[in-house]
Design a protein around this nucleic acid. Structure first.
Length: 421
RNA sequence: GUGGCUGUAGCUCAACAGGUUAGAGCUCUGGACUGUGGCUCCAGCGGUUGGGGGUUCGAGUCCCCUCAGCCACCCCA
């Protein structure tokens, strides 16, 4: 039996309601904040991600779905949402638009990873990017939008983890400081950390190894070595968040996995016990555009996992059931009535009414049972008797009452009933 | 990529210490009620016990491999 590739899922009609629910909220909030939706290709030139995400990262090193097309070009299934949007901004000359340009997206993301609950090889993200403005008030807006989304869909008990990792002016010095500190303790570090020290020192702060925790605690903080400009930027961000009554937790170990981040970095975590997977995260990436084009474009954005939002809603017991749309079931008896029924159903559908009927000859009992199962509100019952009189029985399936209605009144009556539903 | 747990109808689960044709509930279909749903009762459909190999007279049950899901790690969404 063939099945979905590992780490991928079918989204069935019954599960669609939850997706629509969160997607509708996301789109409404984006509209309120002035973010326009953008769609970029599912695959891009492999170099886009190599240059922006960073050669030393897990994504580029071992998680990308990369392939050569028939023309010999190396393409990669989108492993994250930001780089393609920045690419589109540059490609379409959006620097001529009023800045910042605020874009939102709903996109599939692909990463070759070992699957687990809430961790898939193809997952989906809501994301937002504000491009062309470096003011920290934009950072605050982006964070507010994300938390607004979580609040509106009903997620509670979340914590905003916040940090600033500096920029080109001060980060190199910090990394030097951090490396120097760690080099003095090399002998006591785990093997992984010894590698990090060489390859990606910032990630030393991410280590979960017990024996490394004391070093993380004692290590110099990024916040302690920010340059004046970054310090002021972070200060404005904090004050802006406070102005919106947004609580945050300063987390000096939060450095994010991708190389392109500068200054602001943040994640939102579910409150649940143990180390949970982040619901969403993002940050500022003022150096990213340079890797793609000739222009410097400051930017800030977030990505948040749709499957994880829904998973957490379910864990909170907030499964959203689909509303059953107004519907009519046309039950017929006999060949003549069946033909009449096909015409009636067709007419109702042209009017936008959900109309259903059986595809083969079945007992009236079976047809009404199916009408109930399909969630129809009304049944139209037509047999030879009704056909002769030019009438049909209109049955209210909730109240179990029915009346004889003129054929010509049927559709208008149902339209009226739908309006009142 | 590492370690561990799990895997029986569409769903939720049974099946003594290996022993005849692997059961039940729900769902679906039909009937009791030849033109009136939901309740009840009856019946039917539905499984190469995730897949492959091995041990054995005999494997859902034991062993190996493999696939998938889950948990922890890794990492993040």
């Amino acid at each position: 039996m063939l099945q979905t590739p590992r780490g991928t899922n079918d989204l069935l009609p019954a599960e669609q309601a939850a997706w629509d629910y969160v997607s509708d909220h996301f789109r409404a909030i984006c509209a309120a904040y002035g973010y326009g939706e953008i769609r970029t290709p599912v695959f891009e030139d492999t170099r886009l991600f190599q240059r922006t995400v960073g050669e030393g990262t897990d994504i580029v090193e071992k998680e990308m779905y990369t392939f050569f097309d028939r023309g010999g070009d190396s393409l990669t299934l989108r492993p994250e949402g930001t780089a393609p949007v920045v690419r589109a901004y540059l490609e379409h000359g959006m620097h001529r638009l009023p800045q910042p340009v605020k874009l939102s997206y709903i996109a599939s993301i692909f990463r070759y990873d070992r699957p687990q609950a809430g961790r898939l090889r193809q997952h989906h993200q809501f994301g937002v990017e504000a491009l062309g403005e470096s003011a920290a008030t934009v950072d605050a807006e982006v964070i507010a939008l994300l938390l607004h989304l979580y609040r509106n869909v009903g997620l509670t008990g979340l914590s905003l983890q916040l940090n600033s990792i500096g920029d080109a002016a001060c980060r190199p010095q910090y990394i030097e400081e951090l490396s120097a500190y760690y080099r003095s303790h090399t002998h006591a570090l785990c093997e992984n950390c010894r590698n990090r020290l060489e390859r990606n020192p910032l990630r030393l702060l991410d280590c979960k190894e017990d024996s490394c925790q004391p070093f993380i605690h004692a290590a110099p903080h990024t916040l302690g070595s920010l340059c004046a400009a970054c310090d002021a930027h972070f200060d404005t961000l904090k004050r802006s968040l406070e102005a919106m009554d947004i609580d945050y937790t300063l987390n000096h170990t939060l450095v994010r996995g991708l190389d392109y981040y500068t200054r602001t970095v943040f994640e939102v975590w579910p409150e649940a016990v143990g180390r949970q997977s982040a619901l969403g995260g993002g940050g500022r990436y003022d150096g990213l555009a340079r890797h793609i084009g000739k222009r410097d474009v400051p930017g800030i954005g977030f990505g948040t996992g749709i499957e994880r939002i829904i998973l957490n809603l379910e864990r909170q017991g907030l499964a959203s059931a689909a509303d059953v749309p107004f519907g009519v079931y046309v039950a017929t008896l006999g060949d003549n009535a069946a033909r009449y029924g096909i015409g009636l159903v067709n007419d109702l559908r042209q009017r936008g009414i959900r109309a259903l009927m059986t595809y083969k000859s079945r007992s009236l009992k079976a047809q009404l049972r199916q009408a109930g199962n399909l969630g129809a509100h009304y049944a139209v019952i037509v047999g030879d008797d009704e056909l002769e009189q030019g009438k049909a029985l209109l049955r209210d399936l909730n109240s179990s009452t029915q009346e004889l209605v003129d054929d010509s009144d049927l559709a208008p009556t149902l339209e009226r009933l739908r309006a009142g539903n």
